[in-house]
Design a protein around this nucleic acid. Structure first.
Length: 286
DNA sequence: CGGACAACCTGGTTGC
DNA sequence: TGCAACCAGGTTGTCC
C-alpha cells in the first residue's frame, strides 16, 4: 500500500508530467472523498495552472496558481493516475480533472479511505490531511536525539512507534518491518528503551531502504493495487527481505533464523527471531 | 496524557 | 458450488 516511496514516486511522475498544465474542469463523482465543502473545492481548482508539487510523509499536494494547493492522501487503496482522455475510466474513479493536452488526472480508490483537500498557502496547519504529521522520514535534519526524545513517553514497541506519523512521517507497515530487520531490533522493543545509537541506525536504515524503494518506483505486492502516477507497477517487492516472507530463511548471510509473522498492535509484523532477538540492543551495550 | 481498539470500506481469500 | 466470515491496511475518533 502507498507508503513514502510509493507516494514520492507518484509525486515525481506528476511533477514531471503535470507541472505547467492547466486544469480545465474538475468533476467529482463522489463528493465525500473531499475534506471540506466540495463546491468550494471545485470552484477553487477549476481553471488553475499546476505550478509545483510537494510531499510530507504519505501526504502530497499539487501547488496551483493563486496560492492554493490540492492535498491528497491515498490511505489504503487510493491511486492518482495520469491518463489519456480517451481511456476508459477504471471502476471506483471518484474524481477526474481534464487537463490541457487531452489528458486527465484521475483519483481512483475502491475502499474510499483516501481524501482530497483544498489547501490555502500559509494555512496548512488547518488542513485535516496535514495536521498531526511529524517530520518526513527522509528530511535532512532528522536526528537520533529528536527520535529518542519523541520516544521518551512511549512504552509501545518500536515498530508501533515508527508507524505513528506524528513522530516520523512516511513509514508504513511494510517498510517498518524491513527497517527493523536491517537494524537488528526486535519490533516489540519498547520505544523508550531504544538507545541513541540504535535510533541513529534506524535513521540510516530508513534512508537506505526508502531511497532504494523510490529508485525501484515503490512496492507493488500481489494483493496491492499500487501503481505509479503513470500506471506502472513498482519493483521493490523483489528487494523485500522479511515482509511477506513467513517461514522463509532469513536472508542475512550466516543467519540460520526463519522469518516469523506475528501480530503486533493488530498489524502483521515480520521479523527474524535470531538476528532481531529481544534484548539484543541492551546486551550489546555492555 | 498514553494506549487499546473500533470504525471506515471493498475485494480477495478461506472455511464450511 | 454458494455463501458467510474473515482479512488487509492508514488514520481518526472514542473510551479507559
Amino acid at each position: 500500500m502507498p507508503e513514502l516511496p510509493e507516494v514520492e514516486t507518484i509525486r515525481l511522475n506528476l511533477h514531471e508530467h503535470l507541472v505547467g498544465d492547466r486544469i480545465l474542469k474538475v468533476t467529482l463523482r463522489r463528493a465525500d472523498i473531499v475534506c471540506g465543502d466540495p463546491e468550494d473545492f471545485l470552484a477553487a481548482v477549476g481553471g488553475k495552472r499546476v505550478v509545483g508539487t510537494d510531499r510530507r510523509g504519505k501526504a502530497m499536494w499539487l501547488c496551483l496558481e493563486g496560492d492554493i494547493a490540492v492535498a491528497v492522501h491515498l490511505r489504503m487503496s487510493g491511486r492518482l493516475l495520469l491518463v489519456q482522455s480517451s481511456d476508459e475510466l477504471p471502476p471506483h474513479t471518484h474524481m477526474l480533472a481534464e487537463l490541457s493536452g487531452g489528458r486527465r488526472l484521475i483519483y481512483v480508490d475502491p475502499r474510499r479511505f483516501g481524501r482530497l483537500e483544498l489547501l490555502h498557502l500559509g494555512r496548512f496547519d488547518q488542513s485535516v490531511i496535514l495536521r498531526n504529521i511529524g517530520p518526513d522520514a527522509l528530511s535532512e535534519d532528522l536526528s537520533a536525539q529528536y527520535l529518542q526524545e519523541a520516544a521518551g513517553a512511549h512504552s509501545v514497541g518500536i515498530k508501533q512507534f515508527l508507524l505513528d506519523q506524528s513522530h516520523l512521517a512516511g513509514i508504513g507497515n511494510i517498510y517498518a518491518s524491513e527497517i527493523l530487520h536491517r537494524v537488528g531490533l526486535h519490533p516489540a522493543t519498547p520505544a523508550n528503551r531504544v538507545t541513541t545509537e540504535e535510533m541513529q541506525r534506524i535513521i540510516d536504515a530508513t534512508r537506505e531502504i526508502l531511497e532504494a524503494a523510490i529508485g525501484a518506483r515503490g512496492t507493488t505486492l500481489g494483493d496491492s493495487q499500487y501503481q505509479t502516477g503513470l500506471g506502472q507497477s513498482g519493483g521493490y517487492q523483489q528487494c523485500l527481505r522479511v515482509y511477506g516472507k513467513a517461514e522463509e530463511n532469513c536472508p542475512v548471510p550466516g543467519c540460520d533464523g526463519v522469518i516469523r509473522r506475528s501480530k503486533i498492535a493488530q498489524r502483521s509484523t515480520y521479523f527474524c527471531p535470531v538476528c532481531q532477538a529481544r534484548g539484543r540492543g541492551r546486551r550489546a551495550g555492555r
